[in-house]
Computed example of a mutant assay.
Amino acid sequence: MVARLQGFNEAWGWQLAGRKTAQYRQVGNAFPPPVAEEVGRAIMRALAHAGQPHDMPELASATLHAPVYRLLKEADGYLTPAAILRNLTVPYDAIQLERRIAHLSKDFVIDIEETRSGPAYKLGEFKAFIGQDEHERHEAFAHRVGRSRIS
């Protein structure tokens, strides 16, 4: 029954090995066939360039993110979205700005201060791991793997 719930068809003749617990694990750890089929179809559609293309600004080149980054980097303090949009040399709307800031937050600490007119942003330090001795990932790695350093 568990295999049927996962989408395995009995007609395919799948044989599960071992005792009941081992069989449950095999089914539980398996990629459900209907999902695998849809992933395969999606890959085929992508390779065939089928469907309507759509803009994904968060995957755009770094030069599109540069104006927002530059404004935040050069600012002496916090900037509200309205101030950022006023000072940009390229046209952005509020949603695009929010996406850019979310994209920047993957690599930088973005400090947010609540003001009367809403949030204000300040670019913090670069947070990607580049081997710094004091980086928090050393400690996290030590707890998970039992090693004290990432080499």
Rank of each mutant, 00 (worst) to 15 (best):
K127C: 05
E125L: 04
F108A: 05
A62F: 04
A66S: 08
V145M: 03
M44P: 06
A142D: 09
K20P: 05
L72C: 08
P33L: 08
V68P: 01
H143F: 12
A17H: 12
K73T: 05
E98A: 15
E139L: 03
Y69D: 04
G131D: 05
A102T: 08
E98K: 13
Q132S: 08
P57S: 04
E37A: 10
L85E: 00
R41Q: 07
L97K: 09
K106R: 13
R147S: 11
H49I: 07
E37P: 01
L71M: 10
R144L: 15
G40V: 07
A50E: 11
L5M: 11
G13D: 00
P57G: 02
F129H: 05
R100K: 05
E37F: 06
S148W: 08
V90A: 14
E136K: 14
N87Y: 07
D55S: 14
E10N: 08
L47K: 11
D111N: 09
N29I: 06
H135V: 00
A66Y: 11
R137P: 03
A17K: 13
E114R: 15
I110K: 00
H135T: 00
A75W: 08
I43L: 14
S105H: 02
V27R: 05
E58Q: 15
A82Y: 04
W14H: 12
V90P: 01
Q132P: 04
E139V: 02
E125N: 10
R41E: 06
W14S: 11
H103M: 09
E134N: 14
P57C: 03
S151W: 10
L72W: 04
E139W: 04
I84K: 05
S148M: 09
I110V: 12
D55L: 15
F108Y: 15
T63M: 10
G118W: 01
V2D: 10
Y69H: 14
T80L: 13
G51P: 00
R25Q: 09
G124L: 03
A11G: 05
P34M: 07
L72E: 06
P119H: 09
V35T: 11
A48G: 04
Q15F: 10
F126V: 12
E74Y: 01
R100L: 02
G28L: 15
E113G: 06
S148A: 13
E37S: 06
A42D: 06
E125T: 09
A75K: 09
R25Y: 06
E134W: 13
Q26A: 13
A60D: 12
V90G: 02
L97F: 03
P81T: 00
P53I: 11
F31C: 13
G28C: 15
R25M: 08
V39D: 05
L16Y: 01
F141H: 14
A75P: 02
D107R: 15
F129P: 03
T63N: 03
E38R: 13
G77H: 02
I112E: 10
I43A: 13
P53F: 07
I110S: 01
L79T: 06
D133L: 11
L59W: 11
V27Q: 05
H135K: 02
T63E: 07
K127Y: 04
E58V: 15
Q52K: 08
D111C: 07
A82K: 11
P32Y: 08
E98S: 13
E98Y: 08
K122L: 07
F108V: 12
R41A: 06
N87D: 12
V90T: 09
